[in-house]
Simulated scan of single mutants.
Amino acid sequence: MIPELLEVIALVTSGVVAGVLFAVAVSVLPALFALPAGRYIETHRLLGKGYHPTMPIVVNVAMVADLWLGLVAEDSASRALFVVAGVLLLASQFVSHLGNVPINRRVKAVDPEAVPEGWQDPRPLWRGWHLLRTTLALVALAANAVGVVLS
């Protein structure tokens, strides 16, 4: 009963993570790139409020469920896939904390009404980090799905 419950938790939470990151990549990012700097900074601030602390919690739940499944799943291939998924989710968190979060802090520090001359637009770099963590999350979801099918 516990492994099945963990599988549902891992699939749902990793699906939410992958889905949210995918939606940001295909819809939110193009919209942010279309905005002038000041509006981008305002919008970036507003979007960040909605994701924190919810997304880190969801990622952690998915990661813990995966790593736990790596210990308790009966099928060895499934165990390996769940561990891989958990490690990929951990990697996506590292990308967030070491890549995206520092950029977020820099953006929040800029006055949207007085963007300095020569301001270094962080959107291209932020997008690169985001696409990396999105890819990691999508592969984690696929590993979870295959792990559940094999178990």
Rank of each mutant, 00 (worst) to 15 (best):
M1T: 08
P3V: 06
L5Q: 01
L5R: 05
E7F: 03
A10H: 10
L11S: 13
G15P: 15
G15Y: 13
G15R: 10
G19V: 04
V20G: 01
L21V: 02
F22Q: 08
F22S: 14
A23V: 09
V24T: 08
A25Y: 06
A25V: 01
S27T: 07
P30F: 03
P30N: 04
L32M: 08
A34R: 09
L35Y: 06
P36L: 09
G38R: 12
R39A: 13
R39I: 13
E42R: 15
H44G: 10
R45E: 10
R45S: 14
L46G: 15
G48H: 06
G48Q: 03
Y51T: 07
M55D: 03
P56W: 01
P56E: 00
P56C: 01
V58G: 00
V61Y: 08
A62I: 03
A62D: 07
L67N: 10
L69I: 05
L69R: 07
L71S: 11
V72H: 09
V72I: 15
V72L: 10
A73K: 07
E74S: 13
R79F: 04
R79E: 07
L81F: 03
F82H: 14
V83W: 02
Q93L: 04
Q93S: 08
Q93V: 02
S96W: 04
S96A: 11
S96L: 08
V101F: 11
P102L: 00
K108A: 15
A109F: 12
V110W: 13
D111L: 11
D111A: 09
P112N: 03
P112W: 05
A114H: 12
A114F: 06
P116V: 07
E117D: 15
G118T: 02
Q120I: 09
R123W: 12
R123Q: 13
R123D: 14
R123T: 14
R123S: 13
P124H: 12
P124L: 07
P124M: 08
L125W: 03
L131M: 14
L131Q: 13
L132Y: 01
L132V: 15
L132Q: 07
R133E: 06
R133T: 02
T135M: 09
T135N: 02
L136T: 10
A137M: 02
A137L: 03
L138R: 00
A142T: 08
V148F: 08
